[in-house]
């Protein structure tokens, strides 16, 4: 095995457009104005929450395509995933799009898994344009992983709120300077880390070591330092996991200035009532990175960022059987297309 495990992209694969759709609760997010659209109800006029999850994907992809006036037939590959059993919402969205489709699963790290692979496909010349993204639906996820929506169980303060929404990006070669929102420079694929935690109501703590591992390895491989990035943002570690990750990285000699090391799970709801330790879900990192941070990169108000999506790879079966929670994180380095001169 070669020493370095980070992928360096040579041909400037870029994000050309994004589509970000949220649910009714996401309307209250302090970042809501960065989302293209927020649905009014959790049902979204669909027959089930799972179908509503599919609708979020449809809307988000359509929004991204519309911004570029593209048709699904202009796209060479579709890389997406979600949290529902056998990623059926993603597959059903792909059914109607008729684009070559690769279903992905890295739980809440799916957004950056997809972005790394999309960048690699474009960089390697295998595809011209790729759509990638991730989605989740709060009620569908609660139903599958936890309790019925209306069940009156008390959630501990370590629990996280699954985001309802979807975030998608069109990745391709920028035809000219203005066409690109952000350039994808590097990607570091995570290794599964399992600190032995078993509490599905404390996933931030379970995921922190995976995030710390991939961030540390990214800096080791690239020879970069934290100061080289304006922002290093993790996916959904939330208030508890993010603090742990910061401590773990400090032990490795990686320290950050204030407002440099951020977390989508802390940002999307800020301190809204009822979210306990923060947000989670594949849509969390997808919406905040594609909605909020990419607009900052496009404007040039941040130059370089490291986006690290984090995922807990558990199933309802494994935690009932007493297994600990294996976790993953993938890191993608993005830079602003605005000239640094």
């Amino acid at each position: 095995m070669k020493q370095e495990s980070t992928w360096f992209f040579q041909n400037k694969p870029s994000i050309l457009a994004t589509g970000v759709v949220g649910g009714p609760f996401e309307k209250q997010s302090p970042l809501a104005e960065k989302f293209d659209l927020c649905m009014d109800t959790l049902w979204m006029n669909e027959a089930s929450f799972e179908k509503a999850n599919r609708l979020l994907i449809d809307r988000s992809i359509q929004t991204a395509l519309n911004k570029l006036s593209l048709h699904p037939s202009d796209i060479d590959a579709l890389l997406l995933g979600d949290l529902i059993n056998q990623i059926t919402p993603s597959s059903m969205a792909a059914r109607s799009l008729n684009i070559p489709y690769l279903g992905l699963f890295s739980a809440c790290a799916t957004s950056m898994q997809g972005l790394s692979l999309a960048a690699a496909l474009v960089d390697g010349g295998f595809c011209e344009k790729v759509i990638t993204g991730a989605s989740s639906h709060n009620a569908a996820v609660e139903k599958q992983f936890r309790y019925p929506t209306e069940y009156g169980g008390q959630k501990p303060p370590t629990a996280q709120w699954t985001v309802t929404g979807a975030g998608f990006a069109v990745v391709g070669q920028a035809s000219d300077e203005g066409a690109s929102i952000a350039t994808i420079d590097k990607a570091t694929i995570g290794r599964v880390r399992d600190p032995g935690l078993k509490d599905p109501f404390n996933m931030g703590a379970a995921m922190a070591p995976a995030a710390a591992e991939v961030i540390e390895r990214h800096f080791l491989d690239t020879g970069m330092k934290p100061v080289d990035y304006d922002v290093i943002v993790t996916g959904d570690l939330a208030w508890i996991g993010h603090g742990i990750a910061e401590d773990l990285l400090k032990k490795k000699g990686l320290t950050f200035s204030e407002n440099q090391f951020l977390d989508c799970g802390k940002m999307i709801y800020a301190q809204l009532d009822g979210v306990q330790a923060g947000a989670s879900g594949p849509a969390c990192s997808a919406m905040v990175i594609y909605g909020h941070f990419l607009s900052l990169l496009q404007m040039g108000s941040i130059k370089r960022m490291l986006a690290v999506a984090t995922g807990a790879l558990l199933s309802p079966l494994t935690f009932q059987q007493g297994d600990s929670i294996p976790c993953i994180a993938h890191a993608v380095a993005l830079s602003s297309p605005v000239s640094t001169l």
Binding site: G196, G243, D247
Partner: peptide, 27 residues
């Protein structure tokens, strides 16, 4: 149940330091 390794035990301590405790008395 599988026994936790040494590094898992020390991680548990770090995680505990960050954990938000349930307000048991108030609850």
């Amino acid at each position: 149940m599988k026994k936790k390794t040494l590094s898992q035990q020390s991680y548990q301590q770090l995680a505990d330091a960050h954990e938000r405790k349930r307000p048991v008395l108030m609850n």
